[in-house]
Design a protein around this nucleic acid. Structure first.
Lengths: 208, 208
DNA sequence: ACCTCTATTGGACATGCGCGCAATAAGAGT
DNA sequence: ACTCTTATTGCGCGCATGTCCAATAGAGGT
């Protein structure tokens, strides 16, 4: 196999891991699977990562961090806080649709058994919650929202989304995909005192 | 080891499997783990089950069905609908504490890859949701609750509980155990128009 | 007492896993 | 062309897993 630069090879290992994990699941992805996917030897992987746990954590980190920063920048395109929350839900739904949710399910299930993966999962989950927190806080400052405990409200909104999406991913057909977003947005509207339907409407874009 | 009747031994295998799975997770529970937990040889297990998959499926079914019927009967000890919901949350919390939630996480993650496990998980999940639905419907009939769509409200309540409990199980420390119940109960109170705090108080027992 | 059935044993077997390591080869700098 | 670094190989070690099976032991019927 062609000799690659460390950065390029490292990226390819992560990319190959994600391709395998999308089919077999994060937990069932082995060193030999990833090596075969790349067409290289299995020993090569341990030249770049100390353990398979680290490989999985890096792959999950890569995919999840990309989704996170994509969502973050989408939210910045709105100046008003309600619009930002609206963007948040839209971005979450897009990720959900493209099948990444199964990876989150795997990560959550494995979090308590694989320390590196668990730490990454925890950090990114908190980062998602903080996206909601900051949007709510700016909503309060702008006078359009009211909320006693933005941290708690954000956990409830995110957990409701996660819980509903889990039903969608694990038991297709028991609830509708369109209901997930609708229900979660409505619940958050009530919590922060927004007029019903505010989050459902496409937000105004920010003026430059 | 004492020679037991087939039924007794089969039950003990399932019980031992659950004890191990509570610690190691459903997916990581091995034949030898179960045998060691019982204090018998590993070959004995294959005398009763054709494969380890069958053991895990039977164990999950057993535990989940027991938790479900336990919760159902606890709810029946209350005549008023709000009391029943209160019992529901109490039962859910008890199950959660004893470590069974990791098993649900495993089941959800594996649902899309193991059809038999997925079907069981789906059926029992819907049954849990229906426990809430019937309580809400009787609350409406008793005139103590209002709800446009009990099915949807039940999914939201259950998903919020599941989502929050998932954070508890996967990322210990990010939220408090006591908050999970508090937040989920408050959210449901708002949804069905119950006075704040109603679900938090220990319900009156039913008079015979 | 013996006999029969079967619950139970304990280990063999093949497979798959993460990981480590000595050998190899490719590319970059001189 | 020569050297030096290191990306890459290919295999082997130790361990854990599920499955299978011949041998053993214990309880119930006659």
């Amino acid at each position: 196999m062609p000799r690659l630069s460390p950065n390029a090879r490292r990226d390819e290992i992560i990319a190959a891991t994600l391709r395998v994990a999308a089919v077999k699941g994060l937990a069932n992805t082995t060193v030999r699977d990833v090596a075969a996917e790349m067409g290289t030897s299995s020993g090569l992987i341990h030249h770049y990562f100390a353990s398979m746990d680290d490989v999985l954590a890096a792959a999950f980190e890569e995919a999840a961090a990309a989704d996170l920063s994509g969502t973050e920048s989408a939210m910045k395109s709105c100046s008003d806080a309600a619009g930002r929350l609206s963007k948040f839900f839209a971005a979450y739904a897009r990720i959900d649709e493209y099948g990444a949710f199964q990876m989150w399910l795997d990560a959550w299930a494995e979090a308590s058994r694989r320390p590196a993966l668990g730490a990454t999962s925890r950090r990114l989950n908190v980062a998602w919650q903080q996206l909601i927190v900051t949007a709510i806080v700016s909503g309060i400052n702008q006078g359009t929202m009211t909320c006693d405990d933005p941290e708690a409200t954000a956990w409830r909104a995110l957990s409701l989304l996660d819980g509903l999406s889990m039903q969608l991913a694990a038991h297709p057909g028991v609830i509708e995909r369109s209901d997930v977003l609708d229900w979660a947005m409505t619940a958050l509207e009530v919590e922060v005192g927004l007029p019903s339907g505010t989050l459902h409407r496409p937000p105004d874009e920010q003026r430059s």
